[in-house]
């Protein structure tokens, strides 16, 4: 199963190269370092908030996982820099990914 079909089911996986073990992000069918095949590591994963802001009282933040992958996510409570978070909700809506962390 590929990254997007997992994401559609609300599961956030981390794509990793079978050959060189490099994390492949954004998700792709091949490793961008050695063009090896990619497998999906299943979570949950702990991430770290790198930066944040808000719009109309809704907080959004930039989160890093495994020192490599970064995403923009919603967060309900006021975020803190360096805060450890995990993905509570994710999916694909109108072709766009969405993520929420707690």
């Amino acid at each position: 199963m590929n990254f997007e079909s997992k994401l559609t089911k609300g599961e956030f996986c981390i794509p990793e190269c079978i050959k060189c073990k490099k994390i492949v992000w954004p998700p792709s069918e091949f490793c961008n370092s050695c063009f090896g095949d990619v497998v999906l590591k299943e979570g949950p994963f702990m991430g770290k908030i790198l930066e944040f802001s808000s719009q109309n009282q809704q907080n959004f933040c930039l989160v890093e996982f495994e020192n490599t992958i970064r995403i923009m996510a919603k967060i309900l409570k006021k975020p803190k820099l360096g805060q450890a978070v995990k993905i509570s909700k994710c999916g694909i809506s109108d072709g766009s990914y969405f993520f929420e962390v707690i």
Partner: peptide, 19 residues
């Protein structure tokens, strides 16, 4: 750029840069 999640409009990267 799906790593931006639902925050694809340029005002969101600009907010992160600004902050």
């Amino acid at each position: 750029d799906n790593s931006r999640g639902e925050f694809k409009h340029p005002i969101f990267w600009a907010s992160i840069f600004t902050k």
